[in-house]
Computed example of a mutant assay.
Amino acid sequence: MIIDILLLFAGFVALIFGANSLVDAASSVAVKLGIPNIVIGLTIVAFGTSAPELVVNLFAAISGSTEMVLGNVLGSNIFNILGILGISAIIYPLTVKTSTTWLEIPLSLLAAICVLIIGADMFLDGATTNAITRSEGIVLLLFFTIFLVYNLTVAKAGGEEEEMETKSYTTGKAILFILLGLAGLILGGRLIVDSAVSIAEVIGLSERVIGLTVVSIGTSLPELATSIIAVRKKNVDIAIGNVVGSNIFNIFLILGISTTVAPLQLNDGAFFDIFVNIAAGLLLFIFIFTGKGRKLERWEGIFLLGLYIAYVTYLVTA
């Protein structure tokens, strides 16, 4: 048990190191190739922060731990809204831009509802089982492509070149760090899946619960760190944009790729988590559009964080 916990921790360290190394090296290469910062931010950096969830899910899908696949995606999204935005709003009230309010927040809610629709086969189609099939995974990837192209088009049309700090590596050093980053992601993902499954067996929790709690929080650490740093610097729109964008990536890209690799069978417990994910997105939508100034106030952050603690407590004790 202790060895599994240490391996799980080592897996998270390797995973985050790998993602950071990959982003830094790839961004350095992109700058040398003359790629605009906004494109780097919306592609390389965004993919990098989602890499932990993606790698863990791929290993889980390949090894047949399908409950962990959906649990990691839903758990990350729930933690992003209730946990990360809750903590961020407690530190400093969050104000969002019109573009984030009117596009990304509703779209993240739509993505959450989309999971319910494609998974409720018994209710909608009269099927014998509920599943997210390979063809539905491909549809999610098509939605992601539309979202990414739209974001790039809007960003380039805006004509504003955002400032972004990037590392300056020689070509040889960049290739080395890209390889180290990939190695860290692969090693970390393998360690996390294997040790999490072992821990679940020892303490009697399902892979779904482990995926919803320990694994999802661990893979969301890059988003947590980014949001806290941003809000401490009063860059509050970055904090909320980072979280909402990550939620869209998690469903359209990561769940899309995972189910394309291995279709998922959904049990009854999964629908409780799907509804919690929808409720979290709806709650964020309501909080932003009520009151004045499109703000997430401190008391709302406390409320969100309290809900997350209650949700995790229920999962562990139920």
Rank of each mutant, 00 (worst) to 15 (best):
M122I: 14
T226W: 02
K233M: 09
V236Q: 13
V244C: 08
S168H: 05
G256S: 06
I228K: 10
K234N: 00
M164K: 04
N250E: 13
S135C: 06
V243R: 03
A200K: 15
G188P: 01
G218P: 07
S216I: 02
E162W: 08
L221P: 00
A200Y: 11
L253I: 15
V149K: 15
A174H: 01
K173G: 11
E161D: 10
N130A: 00
V197E: 14
I229Q: 09
K173E: 12
T153W: 13
V214C: 00
A200P: 12
A200F: 05
R134T: 12
G189M: 06
R134F: 13
G218E: 04
L255M: 11
L152E: 08
S195W: 01
E161Q: 04
L253P: 15
V244L: 07
Y169R: 04
K167N: 15
F249V: 09
E162K: 14
V154H: 08
L221A: 00
K156P: 02
T128W: 14
A183C: 03
I138M: 10
A127V: 05
G126M: 11
I251T: 14
L224Y: 05
G188C: 03
I257D: 02
N250L: 03
L140A: 04
T128C: 12
L182P: 00
K167L: 04
G189C: 06
I229A: 08
I203K: 08
S195E: 08
N235P: 10
I238T: 12
D237W: 09
K167S: 05
V236P: 10
L191N: 03
E201G: 14
L176C: 02
I257Q: 07
E201Y: 11
T213I: 09
I254G: 13
L152N: 08
G126W: 05
L221Y: 09
G159V: 02
A239T: 09
E165K: 06
V214D: 03
M122S: 10
V209H: 04
G256D: 11
I254F: 04
E223I: 15
T219A: 01
P222I: 06
I217A: 01
I254S: 05
G245Q: 03
I210R: 12
L176T: 05
R134G: 09
S198H: 12
V243G: 13
G137T: 02
L255K: 03
S227G: 08
S220H: 00
L255I: 12
I199Q: 10
V193W: 14
M164G: 03
I257L: 07
V202M: 14
T170G: 11
V231I: 10
